[in-house]
Write a protein that binds this DNA or RNA. Structure first.
Length: 654
DNA sequence: CCAGCTCTGGACCAT
DNA sequence: CCAGAGCTGG
């Protein structure tokens, strides 16, 4: 048996180059793999996990962390198909939830906590700032939100005095509502490890080998989380590329990777410099561009592929004509070279740029899919229905309550709700429990409100019963029909059709999810239990939705479609043909990055990420005029275009 | 005090 | 181009 595994592993290892092999066979101690774009890092990570297991490591003791569910899923599948074993590979955020569900009681929280997404937390901040400063004070809630976020992401101890009171109130209220925000999913596990050595030790003894992908995009909380977890055994395997660090605005620090040698003594460093993805032309262009950055970890990416075609440069006179050119080229490439649409992508800097492309592709009947952007679950009608569902799970959920109490209109306005919230707060009663009796007598209540109150209470009662008895999809249907939500949808004739389709889609998705859970449960018996409780429940459905990004949910779409996405969303992907569009000053590089050299370098890294997604052919386009901020503006070509050597590009005339 | 209307000002990237 | 502020009638 052992020899069988060995020979099997040997075949896998034979597929790797010298450096890749060295990384894959690394067993103990800290290791940094500097993996250039397209250098086969996923293959290395997967083989390394297989090698560990072949050497007798229990799969249960291995932990892999990635940034997106999609990447985690892919790695998991590849490991499983290679050695037939299931290994825990998760995103930082899902891992945080897992740890908190097991151990958050040590921080005084209930294990039944709810997760507030960015939208919910913004609403809470707005509510609190009114509470604290009065309704007339103009407070930039978004600004506060991002300050709070960076405090948590940087594990800041000193809170700026001017925001201290509102920050503390925010934390206190989250605790009272038994809610955690997105940043807490990293912050609280780290806090847990710092405060409770026994908890830390428990997890250290569970995961002996840790692998972290995209290490260049970790923030300080994640850094600390990882550091604590591997402290005992020091078996940390990180993979990353400083040149692809593009999330500093989310608190990521490029220093984490640049300082790896200092942080982990005796660290081995391996550079993967052979690119297996792109033509030499594309790679030379990428190298020429990134060379302009000062803060780098020097490495020379090379390719054994052919020179390939020159990079095409196109200047349009409007965003509409830019889209026209792209659509035209896509048709041509498809018919002339037989390249499927699924192997072609359009990358842009900001989401609003997708508009003209969508319009044109729609009218020309070219199938496309938008990856990212406003996801299905961020649509108003969907969030409203989900808020009803969340209240069934957690009667404390103030934000969801405020979202749906007057949806449809039941006569409750700001005045009433402010008083009611204050009342619930003072009496320390979960907001939904107030519905067990008539509105508090100290709050003036009109006849309409009394009726609305009764109606809402009955609805809640009925839905709670439906939750116990009916399958999830039926429950979702009940929420939609019984709440009266359909009457709101019908109000607006313009959007009526679309919104009806969306809520119907939600019912379908719930049914689909249920089926999948049941299937999973049957497979689950074969493998070690990885999730303590796997029965399809409302709470697990809701949790998965909050953690599933638009990026992840669209992978099920396997029909032949052109992909449209931001350059950020393109990271980790590759396509035969890539169009990088909107390459204009103040757009890419974005205007907000002009103030500092650091953020300008990050823009350049983002451009680099975009270029290196292309395998065969790269198109760069820009327009001289564009509709921006409500008006028509003159645009200048991006400085990055000038960084591409002449001999690598050719200009396409319209 | 709520609901519906008009007006205005703000809009990068996202787990 | 949409969300939230501001205004006014019920």
């Amino acid at each position: 048996m052992q020899h069988l595994i060995d020979s099997f592993l040997q075949t896998e290892l034979d597929k790797l180059n010298k450096e890749q092999k060295k990384a894959a066979l690394h067993k103990e101690g800290p290791l940094l793999v500097l993996a250039g774009a397209g250098s086969g890092k996923t293959k290395v990570v997967v083989t390394r996990i297989a090698a560990l297991i072949a050497q007798g490591v229990d799969p249960y003791n291995i932990l892999g962390v990635t940034f997106t569910n999609k990447a985690a899923q892919e790695m998991k599948e590849r490991v499983s198909s290679l050695i037939g074993k299931s290994v825990l590979i998760s995103t930082f955020h899902s891992l945080g939830v897992r740890i908190l569900r097991e151990s958050i009681d040590r921080l005084g929280f209930s294990r039944q906590f709810i997760i507030y997404d960015a939208d919910d937390s913004l609403k809470l901040i707005k509510t609190l700032s009114k509470e604290l400063y009065g309704p007339d004070e103009k407070i930039d809630a978004k600004e506060l939100q991002s300050l709070f976020s960076s405090i948590k992401n940087n594990l800041e101890r000193a809170i700026p005095p001017n925001i201290e009171s509102i920050y503390n109130l925010y934390k206190k209220r989250l605790f009272e509502l038994q809610a955690v925000d997105f940043d807490d999913l990293l912050f609280l596990p780290t806090l847990l490890f710092q405060r409770h050595p026994d908890v830390l030790e428990y997890y250290q003894d569970r995961w002996h080998y840790m692998l972290v992908d995209e290490y260049q995009d970790t923030n300080h909380a994640q850094y600390e989380f990882v550091r604590l977890l591997v402290q005992k055994r020091k078996n940390l395997f990180v993979v990353g590329d400083p040149d692809q660090s593009i999330y500093s605005w989310r608190g990521a620090s490029i220093r984490n990777i640049l300082d790896f040698e200092q942080d982990y003594r005796d660290a081995t460093i391996i550079k993967l410099e052979q690119n297996y993805r792109s033509t030499r032309t594309i790679l030379s262009a990428a190298n020429a561009v990134i060379k302009n950055n000062d803060s780098r970890y020097e490495k020379a990416l090379w390719s054994a592929h052919d020179e390939g075609e020159k990079i095409s440069l196109f200047q349009a006179r409007s965003e509409r004509l830019e889209a026209h050119f792209v659509a035209h080229m896509v048709r041509q490439i498809r018919s002339l070279h037989g390249i499927p649409l699924s192997d072609i992508a359009i990358f842009y800097r900001t989401n609003f740029q997708s508009r003209p492309f969508e319009d044109l592709l729609l009218s020309q009947k070219i199938p496309y899919t938008i990856i990212g952007g406003l996801s299905f679950y961020q649509r108003k009608e969907i969030k409203d229905i989900l808020a009803y569902l969340r209240l069934l799970e957690n009667p404390n959920d103030l934000i969801s309550f405020l979202r749906v109490i007057n949806m449809p209109k039941r006569g409750f306005g700001e005045q009433f709700l402010t008083k009611l919230t204050a009342y619930a707060q003072r009496e320390a009663i979960p907001i939904m429990h107030l519905l067990r009796s008539p509105p508090p007598s100290e709050i003036r209540t009109s006849a309409k409100q009394k009726a609305g109150w009764q109606e809402f209470a009955t609805l809640y009662h009925n839905l709670l019963q439906a939750k116990e008895k009916k399958p999830l999809s039926e429950l979702v249907r009940d929420v939609i029909t019984q709440s009266g939500y359909l009457s709101i949808i019908d109000l607006d004739k313009e959007t009526r059709e679309e919104r009806r389709e969306n809520v119907a889609e939600l019912i379908a998705k719930a049914a689909e999810w249920e089926d999948m859970q049941i299937q999973d449960m049957q497979i689950q018996d074969m493998q070690e239990a990885e999730n303590p409780e796997k029965e399809p429940s409302l709470s697990r459905f809701l949790e998965e939705l909050t953690l599933t990004t638009s990026l992840d949910s669209l992978e099920e779409n396997n029909s032949d479609r052109l992909s449209l996405m931001t350059a950020h969303n393109g990271k980790g992907l590759e396509f035969q043909i890539v169009f990088l569009v909107g390459l204009e000053e103040e757009l890419f590089p974005h205007i907000n990055s002009k103030h500092s050299p650091d953020s300008l370098e990050e823009e350049r890294r983002l451009f680099y990420v975009g270029i290196t997604r292309a395998k065969k052919k790269l198109f760069l386009t820009y327009t001289t005029q564009r509709h921006l901020w409500g008006g028509l503006r003159h645009m200048r070509p991006s400085r990055f275009l000038h960084e591409i050597p002449f001999e690598l590009r050719k200009i396409i005339k319209q």
